[in-house]
Amino acid sequence: MRPDDPTDLPPDDDAVPAPDAPADASERARAKAFAELIDKVVAGRPPAAVPSEQQELLEVATALRASVRPVELGASRRSAIVESALAAAIDRRAGGHGRVSASLPVVPIGRAAARRGARTPWLIAATTSLVAAAALTLWLRDRGAPRAAPPAPATAAAAPLPLELRSRPADPLVGAIPAERAGAALDRIDTIYADRLDGFRARTMSGGLR
């Protein structure tokens, strides 16, 4: 308050100082006390009782702070809200009325993820152990088993010999023997021998006979 103020208002704590007026000591003290009050409210430690004029200011300050800086929930708080919503949904499907059923074990999301993460190495280690045990068992079994002889080459004939390379009746070669040739055995043995010699040579030349 300046002494040469034309309004000449009496000093009043509730009076609103002029915008450009320098703050005096009492105004600074009141501002400091209000700032401490806001800090306590923001920190979650509001005072038990607040003067009505300060209550209004406090609400305005809280609204302003919320408008310029959205509130971010902590991870635990977020998980708790989601879990409670899930539990409520489960409970509703089970016929409840939106409250978490006591019979349904609800595992907190964060804890479940942490539990999975903690189990993974142990699961892998268990699987590895089983595989190693199987490999060891197979190895020991094969060592203990008597060694089988290497498979013999297949000895089945791939195909029968051609007819001309086989020992066979001489009927097709000789044909019917007329009566006047009944004693011509020499001619027939010559024919048979010549034919079989051809077959024998063919078989020898082809490498089928050693």
Binding site: A156, P160, L161, R166, S167, R168, R196, G199, G208, L209
Partner: peptide
């Protein structure tokens, strides 16, 4: 290929 007994 076997050596068939019926071969020449």
């Amino acid at each position: 290929v076997t050596q068939p007994e019926d071969g020449i």
